[in-house]
């Protein structure tokens, strides 16, 4: 029973959306299912936050290695949460000045905005900025022109790297007009529009077939791995 009902819910949820696509009479059913899905996605954020708290509280109570950093995470989490949910330091909206809670939680200049601008933004952006260094290091250590496939890959990368900056103009700007197509900036365009399009289209078709088959397996109850093991 504990497995049959979820299987039914999966199948109904999925097939409603599929049927809704084919008939305008059932379009609103699809809309309803999609709206419920969207709301559950927001609730998943709360679940995520709850899980984070659970994990880090456990780390602290077990005094696991690095538990003090879990403390930092929790303080950052709770501070942001309280300021955000409480709309602390936020003024009412201009349309409804007499409603204290009507203002935007991310009002410019407010404490939650401050946390975004001076903590969330630099932290997440810098995390991704680090990738520039790792890609450089990987290029030095890992890209070897061992065979024709690797040479094709590296050659294309070189053309793109040069052709998508002004270096391309420097290197091949002197080519005469009848060899225009060999100028790096033009070669880049050709590679992207012709070779890259062909390669990615094949990959896209492959992935699409893969997704269709996994989706069908889930909807028809062939693949039940998402239900996990444990209690029946």
């Amino acid at each position: 029973m504990k497995r049959t009902i979820p299987l039914l819910i999966t199948a109904i949820g999925g097939f409603v959306l599929i049927i809704a696509f084919f008939s305008s009479y059932t379009q609103s059913w699809g809309e309803v299912a999609a709206i419920w899905f969207d709301i559950l996605a927001a609730i998943a954020f709360i679940l995520g936050g709850g899980n984070l708290m659970k994990i880090h509280l456990k780390k602290i109570s077990d005094r696991k290695a690095g538990w003090a950093y879990s403390g930092v995470t929790l303080i950052a989490f709770l501070t942001t949460l309280i300021i955000g949910l409480g709309k602390i330091g936020v003024n009412p909206s201009e349309q409804f000045p007499d409603y204290a809670w009507s203002g935007s939680y991310r009002e410019v200049g407010g404490p939650f905005w401050w946390l975004y601008e001076f903590a969330f933004k630099p932290l997440t952006a810098t995390m991704f900025a680090m990738l520039a260094f790792y890609v450089a290091s990987a290029a030095f250590r890992a890209f070897r022109a061992k065979n024709i496939e690797a040479i094709l890959l590296l050659g294309t990368a070189f053309i793109i790297l040069l052709g998508r900056t002004y270096a391309g103009v420097w290197v091949t700007g002197w080519l005469p007009e009848w060899l225009e197509g060999l100028k790096l900036e033009n070669l880049t365009v050709t590679i992207m529009k012709v070779f890259n399009t062909a390669g990615n289209r094949a990959i896209m078709i492959g992935i699409a077939l893969g997704i269709v088959s996994t989706s069908l397996k889930v909807l028809l109850g062939v693949d039940r791995s998402y239900l996990g093991g444990g209690e029946e």
């Binding site: 954020f45 709360i46 879990s70 930092v72 929790l74």
Partner: peptide, 20 residues
Amino acid sequence: SSVVGVSAAYWMVIGFWDVI
């Protein structure tokens, strides 16, 4: 550690005020 805490709470706050 801060980035993990701030982002999780940030998403939660957005989910709450903008959707829930």
